[in-house]
Amino acid sequence: MSDGPAIELTGLTKRYGPVVGVDRLSLTVGTGEVFGFLGPNGAGKTTTLRCLTGLLRPSEGRVRVLGLDPITDHSRVAPHLGYLPGELRLYPELSGAETLDLLSALQEAPVPRRGELCDRLGLTPAVLARPVGGYSRGMKQKLGLVQAMQHDPHLVVLDEPTEGLDPLVQDTFFTLLGEAAAAGRTVLLSSHILPEVQRTCGRVAIIRDGRLVTVQSVAGLREARARRIRLSFADGQGARPLGDAERWAPHWQGDRVELLVPPSEVVGALRALLSRPVADVTVEEAGLDEAFMDLYRNGAVREEP
């Protein structure tokens, strides 16, 4: 392993026949960083993670994980890697304990954290004795988290890790991530849920249609996030010109209008809009798919220094 970045992607491209899954993706994740990988479903997140873990061969470009090629140096990378797939599939006839035993035997490494992780995630011995075919989705996901972290890997790659977890277990999971970061572990967290990434990650990459949209710090991301302003008019005149606010591309439905406004301009926009005969107004953070990605719809790749 090198002392350089934990993950380095240079022009990564993955094609499935004529379909491009990931297109010229370049990205660097430093050692000890908790890094978010954000994008809507089908954006190419899972494909990227599979290239990182050596499951997929890149069509073009270079992938380095812990300074090594995850395919040609698989036997040197994999011992230091913990991975939770996005769609966790287990052998249904094995019990939870047998599953963890099998995966640790394949890992060929001690599992110093298994007991602690099982305790904290509520996987009791009785639960672990049952075949995983009878587990709920949340239970499977807990088992997936344990198998990914039980050997205390240097790099943890998590694809949609909170899917199926109840809020209490999600809290425990985020605490675990915080501890991993404090211990100097590198975490790559893929998600389509913006608050989840904001809560845990120092930096975030946004990917859409297989292309990198931006890489930003979470603070910068929060700053950039749009607010959705909804106004209702009571005069029955329907759509009308909104002056300067027209630049936010208002979306009319009868007497109601919706605008996505950058946070720094919300107050000014409201002042101007409320000079009109408004009957009701709401302001809320926009959802990822509707607003955040919209902000970057035409944006070139940007990366913070």
């Binding site: 599979r50 873990t53 050596g54 499951l55 698989h74 036997s75 994999a78 011992p79 890697l81 991975y83 797939p85 769609e87 966790l88 599939r89 287990l90 052998y91 995966l103 394949l106 890992q107 060929e108 198998q147």
Partner: peptide
């Protein structure tokens, strides 16, 4: 079934 992911991300050639 997808179980190959769990097996082959480990040091299994």
């Amino acid at each position: 079934s997808g179980t190959v992911e769990l097996v082959m991300v480990r040091p299994v050639s």
